[in-house]
Write a protein that binds this DNA or RNA. Structure first.
Lengths: 351, 351
DNA sequence: ACAAGTCTTGAGAACGCTAACAAGATGCGC
DNA sequence: GCGCATCTTGTTAGCGTTCTCAAGACTTGT
């Protein structure tokens, strides 16, 4: 079987252009000191032969690997997948990442790792040794995992922590969860709501805590109570059902709920329907994430939009631009926005 | 800045175990002729030092690259993303791919390519030269792009065509679209429907044609008419709206619609609601894809479930297991299933 | 016009691994 | 016990690129 034509190497380009390997390499990498005339000649040869440098060889020669590694939680990803729950979050981060990587001649690779297992270090370590990425993007809950951040810091690999707002090591990229929690709550208060329940995410995600903080701050600003209005879920549908029931059982006068994920909001919507509560007439609902699902529910949900793709994109930009011996790692905020749909309305009995 | 500890190389393992590099290499790759005693000794050293072979170096030395490349349509992916339409399809294929790759010590990389641009060849060629993947997974509409399949065949790179049922070159993996179209249509006929409209996908996707074939076959089996019952969309929401309107305008007696994507089905649902038609009382609806969205619509949609993850997983298995000089490329079918929810009911006026 | 730079180019080593070959050890049949 | 095949281990030569260093060509200031 004809193995097809051999790959074009830098050597062939060098011969074709009548220069040394090193000169071609300089042209390819935009090296500074090459006469324009020669440069054009080399470029012509590259174009004609269709030369593209081999990633593997580039890595081998000790420079960059042109690979950014994205770490996702295997457990959660698998569960989402198995239950066909939709993994839009993964999607978004991948898109933002891949697009930005390709813009800079990089590639993004995804690795699934169990945060909870005691192999975390080993798994991550193996991935890094095999790939030797130029940067790593950590998604929650990995962003907060000390074992992971310390390993990366020790290895001297630049990394970004998505959904974290604590300063280094590693670039932190937050979507302003405290602000988003505050924003959603404030809006409900403006609409006349006084008893606003919160279905938070698991404590293991620090962003869960921040959203709660924002919610509390808004309530405090209006002197509204907090007691008995907080429930915790795991972002999944079932946990949302439990939480919504608990909230409504405990607070007959509840008129609004903020859910920390679309799935939990969907569950709350269903619970409300079961109890004969009309959304938004009797109960207003705001969710977090704004995945495609919430546009097609009945009614469509008002939601906090998480600019995940944008955030990951920013993270990748930072990692690629990063100088090896750079100064302190920044904390970057990509603000979330409130998208109003039809699950929010003035509180019952309001003008 | 301390660059962190250096990566462990095969050389260090060899020294630690007191053997040659080659022996370590053999142990790592499961080479056949190593004395058990030595093998265990080497394994112990590997374990102790935490050695993991460098992907780049492995590729360099002329063997496999341990990389499977997945090609997606940039245009469509970007549009999906921009409009936050949900790219569950991408998700599913990624998951199936990544999981199966990692099971075999491979990695999956995603590349977005414009099918329509005249750079297709160049883009693909560049990706292949840079990555030198051991296999390529083509998703629709790339699966049918001659420029692409010929390029891959010529280069001698094993590849799989998802959503295609025509024999080689390249492994074909179909979800049985003709059968699925037939299945959905038959079910509706069983329910007493006689005027069943079809909103097909774009002709550029060959699976669109197959679904139409299945629909026609089922109708023909019952001597039912086809005329005026076919509309074409582009899988997107807006096109679904247009198609559904056209269908209902032209056929006042229409009692069922099959839509070739969830988005188009959602649009049809909305059109029906606008016209005061109750789903499923007045109009039954079956969609293709079964993405998470359709579980949360009102009513939840009956849908043909596309086993995308499963299919991609099978594709990857095939590619990895592939011997270089293998015999003919197979055509593999991973059958789709009908998931009944609440958008289908007996035709109006039926027992 | 000359010394001291700066720009431009090239030669050779190195990156970490495996393929191909070579050589020594072991087993087998007779 | 000898010759041959087989098993086991080691040695050497790349794979395609960039890095380091060195040498030649060109500037510039005086």
């Amino acid at each position: 079987m004809a193995r097809g034509r051999k790959t074009v190497t830098i050597r062939e380009v060098a011969e074709d252009a009548g220069v040394s390997l090193q000169t071609v390499s300089r042209v390819v990498n935009g090296g500074p000191n090459v006469r324009p005339q020669l440069r054009d000649k080399v470029r012509a040869s590259i174009e004609r032969l269709g030369y593209v440098p081999s990633l593997a060889a580039q890595r081998m020669s000790g420079s960059r690997s042109y690979i950014i590694l994205a770490i996702n939680d295997r457990e959660r990803t698998l569960a989402d997948w198995r239950e066909r729950r939709g993994t839009d979050w993964v999607d978004q981060m991948l898109l933002g990442g891949i697009l930005t990587c390709s813009k800079h001649g990089y590639r993004m690779m995804v690795e699934l790792i169990d945060t909870h297992s005691d192999h975390v270090e080993r798994e991550l370590s193996a991935a890094i040794s095999a790939l030797q990425p130029d940067g790593v993007v950590l998604t929650p809950p990995h962003s907060e995992n000390r074992l992971i951040t310390e390993l990366l810091a020790e290895r001297g690999i630049p990394f970004a922590r998505i959904g974290s707002n604590t300063p280094g090591p590693g670039i932190a990229l937050t979507m302003g969860d405290e602000g988003a929690g505050h924003l959603a709550t404030s809006r409900l208060i403006e609409l006349g709501h006084r008893r606003i329940g919160m279905i938070a995410g698991p404590a293991q995600y620090s962003l869960s805590g921040w959203r709660i903080e924002g919610w509390k701050r808004a309530l405090a600003e209006y002197g509204l109570p907090v007691e008995g209005l907080l429930e915790t879920g795991d972002f999944g549908y079932e946990s949302g059902t439990r939480a919504a029931r608990a909230l409504l059982d405990r607070n007959p006068d509840l008129t609004a709920i903020i859910a920390s994920s679309d799935q939990m909001a969907l569950a709350a919507l269903e619970v409300a329907r079961d109890r004969g509560l009309s959304v938004p007439r009797d109960l207003s609902l705001i969710s977090f994430d704004n995945t495609p699902i919430v546009r097609f529910t009945n009614p469509p949900l008002t939601a906090i939009d998480q600019p995940i793709a944008e955030t990951v994109s920013r993270a990748v930009e930072q990692l690629i631009a990063r100088e090896p011996a750079d100064d302190g790692d920044p904390v970057i905020e990509v603000a979330a926005a409130l998208v109003e749909r039809s699950s929010t309305a003035p509180a019952p009995g309001t003008a």
